[in-house]
Design a protein around this nucleic acid. Structure first.
Lengths: 350, 350
DNA sequence: ATGAAAGCGCTAACAA
DNA sequence: TTGTTAGCGCTTTCAT
């Protein structure tokens, strides 16, 4: 049963058992404990010993086993991040903000995707909490009872992000989507538009889009007006849907003078349609979206939109986690950011 | 030192120690071992016992500790996925394919982002391997020596994806970007275009974009032609950059009759520019991109492009991992997918 | 069908 | 500065 290096054979995956600290200890002639100290830069180790250990570890190709480490130390450098989708353009940017901050603290984001389903969210949270992360960042304030219970009982910082219209389990960082809708409505009314349509997503669980719409309608009501026409989409290319829905809306309601879209992609599609029809934008018809995504920079007109502060939200949320971890026992923070209106070229200047 | 609920104070993080199997065991009056069996659906447990345990676990809000479980069982339901970026539209779709397949097998993807840096990739891989995942999926074939060594020594299935122009550490699933560039060049030449320009990304480490360009140029050379003009971009809105770079390219080389872009966003920007200038697309000038992203469905013309098979690549890669895990000891698979040309409306019909 | 004992690979706490 | 000991919370294995 002696090991027999077969030369000339394509090297198979090494059947070796994974290396342990003990292997490094034996190879370097230093105790496991000291090896552990060197590998974690902890405690005082003499420079010669340090070098011996480092060399042995490198030569063996040792990769520490964090599972054992985490169990022994009761510390995990993981932060759970739970978001509805990765294909939404918006969430990767939040993630960017999060990982920018976490990286500095040696924390690692672990991403879970819920597909806008509370049931799936519950599963994802359960799965994440079972790894005993140092904190959880989760999009939105609407969760199942079980999810809220898990989060509250986890004994770690929990930050709910993107939205502040509701009651958080622990901390929250976001914008008021109700206010965002209202503000946009006010800007539109101030610019003189009166016959207003709405295009949105059908997603029954996109609570933030819903809140924007509700805020928008509330502001119109305050001015004695109402949305004249609306339509909702579900799936497919948002740009194409924006085109089609705008075309349909203007056909059934030719007198509309503004269309408020629940996101920039829909708005961009609408804008392309209107321009191709030779309509005067923003004179004859105005348009607005939401999010301020990068894309709108390249459109024929800069679509009016609102900054959703995604990156900043990510940064702030991550900072709450890192602060809590380094002992600054605060928690229960509530941070409301101010979404700015970017009027672009698709709303008449007042 | 009695606990003293301070009312009116913001509730601090619950100081309770996390629950363990023992807590469930005590509450249910069943041994830890049997509790463990129930919670994992393993072995034979009588129905009454089962119910007792489940009830106790639910009432306590017990979440198992996977760290301990993984250490004891030497099994981890994690699969590392290492990609260059999340903001590229393309990678989230690969991820979608991956998680569709993994989900069925109870495996969980863990995402790492390299920002197109090999040094960062090395760190990310080290970090991931330290969690002893059941497999690793990594984008691209170009890695540092240390990364390749780590992957080879990890003793788990490794799948390199997106590209097949190179030698994998273990398995690979992707398309030939060299071939993709060639095929597009051939289609363009066949349609009668001769004065061809190129717009790409500056990213020095986007090897796949580079290989496409090289294949493209090789095919032109075979036809006795060469790229007449080229430009590269870096950062910012790709749509806007596509616009600007196309404008600049056509200004300095007004006789170009085709522009091949290294991705659809650049191509879309170019298309919008050309149409706004009143140019005849595809008669006067043709355009093509790469990836077949959703967005192009909503453009004024369907941009010519090539399907990069992202979803399928993700699925196949994940299947290799799940197959290896369920004992079907294969490994070392090489799967080359065929990228189809989608001529759209921006290449003249032959 | 259920339980008891051993130990996964590492680190905290203490000893030398 | 270095080493020893005793677990971390669970699962494997074997006994009952």
């Amino acid at each position: 049963m002696a090991e027999q290096p077969k030369q000339g054979q394509p090297r198979p995956i090494p059947p070796r058992r994974p290396l342990t600290l003990r292997d490094v200890s034996e190879k370097s002639g230093v105790s496991e404990m000291t090896v552990s100290r060197v590998l974690r830069n902890r405690g005082d180790v003499s420079e010669p010993t340090r070098q011996k250990v480092l060399l042995a570890a490198r030569e063996l190709g040792y990769v520490p086993n964090r599972i054992a480490g985490a169990l022994a130390s009761q510390r995990v450098n993981l932060v759970g991040v739970v978001i509805p989708s990765l294909s939404n353009q918006v969430f990767p940017e939040v993630l960017q903000g999060i990982s920018d901050v976490l990286e500095e603290s040696g924390l690692q984001p672990v991403i879970g995707v819920t597909r806008y389903s509370q049931a799936r969210e519950e599963e994802v949270l359960y799965e994440m909490l079972s790894w005993r992360p140092s904190g959880i960042i989760v999009a939105g304030l609407e969760h199942s009872e079980a999810s809220r219970a898990m989060l509250a009982a986890a004994g770690i910082p929990v930050v709910e992000i993107m939205d502040v219209n509701g009651t958080p389990v622990d901390s929250m960082v976001g914008i008021s989507h109700d206010l965002a809708g209202r503000r946009m409505a006010e800007a539109i009314l101030k610019a003189g538009y009166r016959r207003i349509g709405f295009l949105g997503t059908k997603m029954p669980d996109d609570h933030r889009a819903r809140k924007r719409m509700e805020g928008f309608e509330a502001a119109l009501r305050d001015a004695g007006l109402a949305v004249q026409a609306r339509d909702f989409y579900d799936g497919g290319s948002a740009l194409q849907k924006g085109r089609e829905m705008t075309a349909a809306l203007l056909k059934s309601h030719p007198d509309l003078d503004f269309i408020y879209c629940s996101n920039d992609m829909i708005g961009a599609g609408g804008l392309l349609h209107c321009l191709e029809q030779g309509m005067d934008v923003p004179g004859e018809i105005g348009l607005a979206g939401f999010n301020a995504i990068d894309l709108i920079q390249g459109l024929p007109r800069r679509l009016a939109t609102m900054d959703s502060c995604r990156r900043e939200i990510g940064r702030r949320a991550a900072e709450i986690i890192t602060a809590a971890r380094s002992g600054k026992a605060l928690s229960r923070q509530v941070i409301e950011l101010e979404p700015a209106i970017l009027p672009g070229d698709t709303i008449r200047r007042a």
